[in-house]
Write a protein that binds this DNA or RNA. Sequence first.
RNA 1: CGGGGCGUAGCGCAGCCUGGUAGCGCAUCUGCUUUGGGAGCAGAGGGUCGCAGGUUCAAAUCCUGCCGCCCCGACCA
Length: 495
Amino acid sequence: MRTGQSRGLFASCRRFAGLISPFGLPFRDEWFDSRASPTRPRRFAAALPVTPSPMYLSRYLLPIAREAPREAEIVSHQLMLRSGMIRQQAAGIYSWLPLGLKVLRRIERIVREEQDRAGAIEILMPTIQSADLWRESGRYDAYGKEMLRIEDRHEREMLFGPTNEEMVTDIFRTYVKSYKDLPLNLYHVQWKFRDEVRPRFGVMRSREFLMKDAYSFDLDQAGARHSYNRMFVAYLRTFARLGLKAIPMRADTGPIGGDLSHEFIILASTGESEVFCHKDFLEMTTPPADVDFDDAGVLQAIVNDWTGRYAATSEMHDTAAFAALPEAEQVSARGIEVGHIFYFGTKYSAAMGARVMGPDGHEHEVHMGSYGIGPSRLVAALIEASHDEAGIVWPDAVAPFDVAILNLRSGDAGTDAACRDLYGACARAGLDPLYDDRDERAGAKFATADLIGVPWQVIVGPKGLAEGKVELKRRASGERVSLTPDEALRRVSAL
RNA sequence: CGGGGCGUAGCGCAGCCUGGUAGCGCAUCUGCUUUGGGAGCAGAGGGUCGCAGGUUCAAAUCCUGCCGCCCCGACCA
């Protein structure tokens, strides 16, 4: 028995000196080596054993709950609270607990990879901005109460940024002076704040939210269209990799006009808005990873293909055009907006003097576009799109862990050893495993694993082990097979 | 910002009408028994009853003000 060890879900974060992680990187020893002192140097990790690890559930922070707080209305909010992903700190403001943060980071990673692939360059702008920039564009007064305005100790007017057009335009105008430096697309992933009158649905519609926003700069409208198409294709790839079917729908372009604004909508029965589209969208294929983003013709062809069929949110809905489709091809559903891209021409470059010298020897105001994806909202949207009665069903790409190892008889020498071996093998195989070593009954472990939605469960019990077998369960289908631990590992690694 | 509702243990709730020892379930801790789908028994800990005034011998309960949160509508990534 592991007497004295915490069995609770709120296990403290005790860790031992000199761990190395399964990935071969030393943990920060100063966090763990309680014996380190000025006269007794820290030990370094390299020569020390691999286990135990902080991804043992008995030492993790996973505050699951059987019941959801009353205020949680929609299923994603309920499940995020029940699975201990987030904690509300104020209306529309959340802490991200370990499980939630892991998912958020996985989403961010995919978003970044596809932005980079499409030629965008990452920067990081601050959350707090000066009011001065916003006065230049005229938006300081125009933005209204959604902007959280604050004052610093010198009584300077500041704000918590709801978006970054002004700031990125400022950066651009300072450093970029020639058409030869175009096109340019700068993006960042940063927390934003919009003081919604009524935040709701957890992180789906929060006041503070994480946003990837990209901003493109081009010499002229033709260039801007190419930049727009790059992001369009990048978004198709991003959402597909996240395990989502996102449908681009014409969005209102406001005073700019034109056809260069799309919302990317995923279908979910709990979606906030009504959407209408052609059924072909459900079967369309995603552009490949090796698409040539510099080839304007190729990109335009992809965009044409994805915009050639009817798709609209209720605001842009054309009842007659939709009714003209054969009834069997009409899809009318509810959707969640997970991305929005638009071209806005010279709105900010004109107001803020962002000009480059063109090949003609004259200065030109640059044509800009901006492209947003909300990773924090996506966490909720993914759950809305993928859950069942037992809990969350994460797509493989964003799951907080790749595989959960359930020890059905913690404290039994045989199952303990088998689980530890399997944990080490998973880690060495590059997987991100979670080991449920708690002193809980089997049922509680099944329920926990189902709730948090890890794609694979390896169930290790004394009965199976007597025959050298473990059980591998696929969360999404519920399918279980009895395998040797090696076979189970191979099966999980295959994806 | 209009309309409504709710604040009692980490979560879900009762108690308030009719003022008088602050309760129940889950969770947590201890012990024993259990052990393949959220175990059983026995015991224990945990509360300035959102905050501040007021009425009263006495306030979770009645009155006033404030704060917070939630829902509907308008708004929105």
